[in-house]
């Protein structure tokens, strides 16, 4: 089989496929307009049902990647396929979980979960039913009528996850969802996310800057380069099933993988810091 054919097979089987995706932004700089390349020739295939973690130094275009995949912006060149079809706009086949929860403060937990269902045109009875089901799935039964400001950070993120799962997307995109939480809440949510993933069989693309988190959650970890964002390496995480009782994070294998990613990232962080000290920082900050 030639390399090209092989490529075609992978593409067909892939749930999400980034094909040579480049994204440039126009940045105003003084009087002129300059161009800033956020992502440059990104190739990435995510298999159906896979948990793929993406790590990278800050400003590596992780959020750009997510925006493109969500259909909120369009690549300058290249294409992104979902089930073999190019993404043309936002859709309910993809659910997004944001770092800052993005819950609607005027809606109760249940009404927040029902938001996407309203967009999909479910009946009220069905919406209630689903909201109850998914609140239970994230361990928040009994909190239906709480407003977001009455919930803790961890609970808000649970509601946000339930909201994204409720309209049953094939793909879950998570943008540093646990970054704003305290360590303990984060660990318990990570464990729960894995069990939700196992129960629902969703394809998950999980963006993070935490190496531990990436190794713990991902079946594969994609390491991105600093500006412009490219996929530097994809590392398999052959850790098998994570169980709740076992402290997998302190195992030797976990440590080795962690170190491998850390070394890859360190170069990028150094490069990115060197970049930060140069006068073009403002430009990069804008495009972030």
């Amino acid at each position: 089989m030639s390399e090209k054919q092989q490529q075609a097979v992978i593409t067909e089987a892939a749930k999400i496929s980034f094909q040579n995706v480049t994204k440039r932004f126009q940045v105003r700089e003084g009087r002129g307009v300059s161009e800033f390349t956020a992502m440059d020739g990104v190739n990435l295939d995510v298999r159906p049902g896979e948990f793929m973690a993406v790590v990278g130094p800050s400003g590596c275009g992780k959020s750009t990647l997510l925006d493109l995949l969500a259909g909120l912006s369009h690549p300058t060149s290249g294409q992104i396929l979902l089930d073999g079809r190019p993404i043309t706009g936002p859709g309910l086949d993809r659910g997004i979980v944001f770092q800052q929860y993005a819950l609607f403060p005027w809606r109760t937990a249940r009404a927040n979960i029902e938001f996407g269902l309203e967009a999909k045109g479910f009946s009220q009875k069905e919406r209630r039913e689903r909201a109850r089901h998914y609140l239970a799935l994230v361990g928040l039964s009994g909190f239906e009528n709480r407003y977001p400001h009455e919930l803790s950070g961890g609970m808000k993120q649970r509601v946000a996850i339930a909201r994204s799962l409720a309209f049953d997307p094939d793909v879950l995109l998570m943008d540093e969802p646990f970054a704003a939480l305290d360590a303990q809440t984060r660990e318990s949510l990570q464990t729960e996310l894995l069990s939700i993933w196992e129960q629902t069989g969703k394809t998950i693309l999980f963006i993070t800057h935490g190496i531990d988190e990436a190794v713990y959650l991902g079946q594969r970890v994609a390491v991105m380069t600093a500006r412009p964002g490219r996929i530097k390496r994809i590392i398999d995480i052959p850790l098998g099933k994570r169980s709740e009782d076992e402290d997998i994070r302190s195992g030797a294998e976990f440590g080795a993988l962690r170190h491998e990613i850390w070394s890859e990232l360190r170069e990028e962080v150094q490069r990115s810091q060197a970049f930060d000290r140069s006068p073009v920082t403002a430009k990069a900050g804008l495009a972030k």
């Binding site: 909120l72 706009g89 936002p90 997004i96 944001f98 967009a119 309209f167």
Partner: peptide, 11 residues
């Protein structure tokens, strides 16, 4: 972010 979140749901 709320607008982005709603737009991502195809509103």
């Amino acid at each position: 972010l709320l607008i982005k979140s709603a737009r991502s749901l195809g509103l």
